[in-house]
Computed example of a mutant assay.
Amino acid sequence: MGEVIALSIGKEKAFTWKDKMVHSAIGKEKVEEVLLTVDGFVGDGVANKAFHGGKERAVCYYPFEHYKKWEEEFKIKLNPPAFGENICGTEFTEHNTYIGDIFSLGKAIVQVTQGRVPCSTISKYNEVDTFLSRIVETCYTGYFLKVIEEGMVNANSSFQLIERPQDKVSVWDATKVMLLDRKNKDAMLTILQIEQLAEDWKNRYKKALEKIN
């Protein structure tokens, strides 16, 4: 069982980076309670729909364990939700969470569908130019979940694993192939066998395989 460190929502807004205006929904704010629907948390939003949002990316989760690593590496203080995540929680990192894992989150039921493809907004928002490249190198990206059962979630909710359909491909495994190993045919074929994998990632792997063949 994991602990929810921060429950956060927010819509697109602007912030300044190197004297330029950036529009993003990364700057989410903590809330005490909010309804989670199949389309996401009520009051939440995204700016770039190519990488965020949609029913298979209704919830963005980022492991609290990584915060200490990044703070030590970049000599900065990071406060959740520094990565634009809805849920910052404990116990379930990319290494020990598997594609298809089903969790209870407050009164809702959610399922892991894919890792996260990070973008430069993370670097800009946290004012660390190398943040994006380091997240890609480590595959400490966080992950997305879809909603199986809608329900209320509050800041004191637990994040509890209730079912694991497969234990061969972790979020980290799938993300590593997606970001760093797009020529690994055997790995992609294995990942594509996972029924619960998001359609977007299925399509990305299939396109990568076509380039290999």
Rank of each mutant, 00 (worst) to 15 (best):
V38F: 12
E29V: 10
I109N: 02
P63F: 07
K68V: 07
S104I: 09
H52V: 10
G40R: 06
F83H: 02
V110P: 00
E56Q: 05
V112R: 08
K68D: 10
T90P: 07
A58V: 09
V42Y: 04
G115S: 05
T97V: 05
I122L: 15
E56L: 01
N48E: 14
N86F: 08
I109S: 02
N48I: 08
I109K: 15
E71G: 07
E65P: 05
N48M: 01
S104M: 04
I135E: 01
D101E: 01
P81W: 06
E91G: 04
A47I: 02
V46C: 09
E137T: 04
T97R: 08
K69E: 12
V136T: 04
A47F: 07
E56G: 02
L132V: 03
F64S: 12
H66V: 11
K77F: 13
C60A: 11
K55C: 00
K107R: 13
E33Y: 05
V136W: 08
Y62C: 06
G89K: 13
G115R: 05
L36F: 05
P81E: 03
Y98K: 07
F74K: 10
N48S: 12
F51V: 13
K49S: 10
N79Q: 14
S104K: 15
F64T: 01
Y61R: 11
E33L: 00
K55S: 15
E33Q: 11
N79L: 12
P118N: 06
Y67R: 11
P63D: 06
I122W: 01
V34M: 09
V31M: 12
V117W: 10
S120I: 13
F51R: 12
K28R: 15
S133H: 12
Y98F: 15
E65H: 13
Y67Q: 10
Y62N: 01
F83A: 10
G53M: 07
V112Y: 10
K49H: 11
P63T: 03
K75T: 09
F51P: 06
T130I: 14
E73L: 15
G100Q: 03
W70Y: 15
V31P: 08
T121I: 11
Y98T: 01
R116S: 10
K107S: 15
V59Q: 09
G100T: 04
V112W: 11
T93W: 06
C88V: 13
